[in-house]
């Protein structure tokens, strides 16, 4: 409501008129907010993995290992990002049903969803996904297992680095572990609305950088 806009802005100006010395923006070093205790030196995938495990994520370093994991839990039906399918399909044997189009009417048929992450954050064990980079929001969210695929050179050291390189994208998300709640008596339960298992798959180094389809 445009009338409301003018009213509110006028009220704001009037309210502030009485303040003689407005508080200045405090310049500070961004590293202030970075955890000082844990080392973030060395291989960033290693550092990321440590934190990711701490938030109950599961880091996996090869497609073979991923397939083995899914098999052992009988997660044999899933969704996969079409771009990733060409890379990963050869690893899945005949026991799997994998679709590269997510059908929202059969939401619960998918046991896992494999999508592309645009990065990860070593300091916090977070996966960075974007709207452009994610082939299906629902495919990354509804299945019990979400597998986010990331390349080693896409890992940020810390949150300020991740913010500084945040893409111009309408829906950037940092995912730090599986969906969870402690609403009932403070008891932690994983897999509330989103995935109960959050995996991060390290893509082989020779995989070309998967570009957003329309970028």
């Amino acid at each position: 409501m445009s009338g409301d806009r003018e009213t509110i802005l006028k009220r704001v100006r009037d309210s502030l008129a009485g303040i003689e010395d407005r508080t200045p923006y405090p310049e500070y070093d961004e590293s202030l907010a970075v955890t000082a205790i844990r080392s973030l030196d060395g291989d960033l995938w290693e550092r990321f993995s440590e934190r990711f495990v701490a938030v109950n994520g599961l880091p996996i370093t090869s497609p073979e290992e991923l397939v083995e994991y899914l098999k052992s839990f009988e997660h044999t039906t899933g969704y996969i990002d079409p771009d990733l399918q060409t890379i990963l399909a050869p690893y899945f044997g005949s026991g799997f049903t994998i679709e590269d189009r997510f059908d929202r009417d059969r939401l619960d048929d998918y046991r896992f969803g494999i999508t592309r992450a645009r990065g990860a954050i070593a300091e916090t064990g977070s996966i960075v996904v974007t709207d452009r980079g994610t082939s299906s929001r629902l495919g990354a969210l509804a299945p019990w297992v979400h597998v986010a695929c990331v390349r080693r050179d896409e890992i940020f050291r810390d949150t300020p680095a991740a913010v500084a390189h945040m893409e111009d994208d309408p829906n950037v998300i940092w995912i730090t572990g599986p969906s969870k709640t402690a609403d009932v008596e403070g008891i932690m339960i994983e897999g509330v609305h989103g995935p109960g298992v959050q995996i991060c798959l390290l893509l082989p180094d020779d995989v070309r950088k998967v570009q957003p389809t329309d970028a």
Binding site: R51, V55, D169, P170, V172, I173, W174, T176
Partner: peptide
């Protein structure tokens, strides 16, 4: 350290 889903929506 961070909540599980931190969404930046623009």
């Amino acid at each position: 350290q961070l909540t599980v889903y931190t969404e930046f929506i623009s």
